[in-house]
Design a protein around this nucleic acid. Structure first.
Length: 262
DNA sequence: CTGATTTGACCACA
DNA sequence: TGTGGTCAAATCAG
């Protein structure tokens, strides 16, 4: 096997788990309000991630699907300082047929400009919490290919500080007796916070009425799988959706997932 | 009324 | 000096 095989296996397991959930949702679709699109995306992303490990085991894989692709750009040819003198900010490019909007973060448009090399205008967005939480993350969206096969390029620049700040604030506010698990430190999670997320499956509560009149409550979150302290693959590759990197023990009671057993 | 978007002007860099 | 990125006032929408 190659370096990263364990990660590939985990990705495949993750895809399998999402497919199973998708099946459950589809079987009860008529009575469920849960969106299945995030689950589709999760399945596709998981398999794409695993495949990328097989095809380029020695490099940090980037996620790619039939509909879109995302490419981290860590080294700019000539890091251009912005007007505040910051340079070398991490970039992440995401190409898709539609503008990449469902990326968990809240953006505020602050500019739009015609670009000389393109017939389409470029839109500039910054984190909606840029002022409140001093978050410097920005993104640019530009159509780089005309219809019918139009392609929108979303370039994420900088790291989201807002979630960390929100987490710290939340930590101060938490005074109840709930037990938490920290998956990693804030600093460890930080480098990837700007990256596009796996299908942003928000905390969804499904109330599915079974044929047997049995009520089953399925409450899940992608991050519920980030329980392996020894291998922080998913915490690194797919940062959590909730502020900070913690979850309540109540959420994972009965959880029985251990990749090392596979 | 408030928050979000638009848009022309300004600024920094190559 | 041209180009791309950001600012901020004006405008729009809920």
């Amino acid at each position: 096997m190659f370096h990263g095989a364990d990660k590939a296996v985990e990705a495949l397991l993750r895809g399998q788990e999402s497919a199973t959930r998708l099946k459950t949702v589809l079987e009860h679709q008529m009575r469920s309000s849960v969106s299945i699109e995030p689950l589709f995306d999760t399945v596709l992303d998981s398999f794409s991630f695993a495949l990328s490990l097989f095809t380029s085991p020695d490099t940090q894989p980037h996620r790619e699907s039939s509909q879109s692709k995302a490419t981290p750009v860590t080294a700019r040819k000539s890091p251009k300082k912005n007007r505040h003198g910051e340079e070398g900010l991490e970039q992440y490019i995401h190409d898709s047929p539609i503008p990449h909007q469902n990326d968990r973060f809240t953006w505020r448009k602050y500019g739009q400009k015609a670009i000389k090399t393109s017939s389409h205008q470029r839109c500039y967005y910054r984190c909606a919490y840029s002022k409140d939480r001093n978050c410097k993350a920005t993104k640019r969206v530009q159509q780089i290919q005309d219809s019918p096969s139009s392609v929108y390029r979303t370039t994420y620049i900088g790291k989201h500080i807002c979630e960390v700040n929100a987490f710290l604030q939340l930590n101060d506010d938490i005074n109840n007796g709930s037990k938490m698990i920290r998956f990693d430190t804030v600093d460890q999670a930080m480098p990837e916070l700007v990256m596009p997320q796996l299908a942003p499956v928000e905390q969804q509560a499904i109330a599915i009425e079974e044929d047997t009149d049995q009520i089953t409550n399925l409450e899940f979150d992608i991050n519920d799988f980030l329980v392996d302290d020894d291998d922080q693959l998913w915490a690194y590759q797919f940062p959590p959706f909730s502020p900070g990197n913690f979850m309540f023990l109540d959420d994972i009671s009965g959880f029985d997932y251990n990749p090392s057993h596979v």
